[in-house]
């Protein structure tokens, strides 16, 4: 009969109305500032710079290669290279960013900077309460605000951070092995030099390089 559906619908909404006062399970709203839900691990919003160790200026992984700056679709990253060099995590001297700014009012959280970074230096943050009264300066984050420790990275994205650490450790080990091999080769060369002719170093070098190449 006409109107039956309307009555059914009215009954349904009345049930919801009354039920929302009786059972708390119906109300799925999280009362945000007081209540919070733990962010899921894959959450991301804006990028930050990872550093190792205690001092952020010394431990910054970024080498100012400017790949992220070039790849950034909305062009929200601005990098100035340093004139001098400082050692990176493996001890190799590298240039570092004298200036590294991200305008998060422009950033679109695409994560492309993270994908292209060869040094695992830039990662995605989960902080979202970034409201500020200063609409230009307050949303333009510089190095000091962007730099966050590796421990912090571990707390927000544990799985991903562990993978990154493993990869870096492996690379570091590889570099060290290579250095050791080179040193051994140099030592062998030094030892062999008095005895053999000039062609010997060419024979000893390949075995030292090969394991490193195979692992890659």
């Amino acid at each position: 009969m006409l109107g039956e559906g309307i009555l059914k619908g009215l009954a349904e909404t009345a049930k919801n109305f009354a039920g929302s006062y009786v059972s708390k399970e119906r109300l799925t709203t999280v009362q945000y500032p007081e209540e919070r839900i733990a962010p899921i691990e894959a959450t991301r919003d804006f990028p930050f710079l990872v550093y190792d160790g205690e001092d952020w200026q010394a431990g910054l992984r970024c080498v100012a290669c400017q790949i992220c700056e070039k790849e950034c679709p909305p062009k929200c990253i601005y990098i100035e290279k340093s004139k001098d060099k400082k050692p990176d995590y493996v001890g190799k001297p590298q240039i570092y960013p004298a200036r590294f700014d991200i305008d998060i009012s422009v950033c679109m959280s695409c994560q492309i900077c993270v994908e292209v970074c060869p040094f695992e230096a830039i990662k995605m943050d989960t902080v979202f309460e970034l409201a500020t009264e200063d609409r230009f300066g307050g949303l333009l984050l510089d190095r000091s605000k962007l730099a966050k420790s590796n421990e912090y990275y571990h707390t927000i994205h544990p799985t991903e951070a562990a993978e990154v650490d493993a990869r870096l450790a492996e690379e570091k080990a590889k570099v060290e092995a290579k250095a050791r091999a080179a040193a051994e080769a140099a030592a062998a060369k030094a030892a062999a030099a008095p005895a053999a002719a000039a062609g010997a170093p060419a024979k000893t070098e390949p075995p030292a390089v090969k394991p490193a190449g195979g692992a890659e």
Binding site: N16, F17, S20, Y21, R26, L27, T28, Q31
Partner: peptide, 9 residues
């Protein structure tokens, strides 16, 4: 009221 009918506050 509309909120309660839609199970909101």
């Amino acid at each position: 009221g509309l909120g309660r009918m839609q199970n909101r506050y």
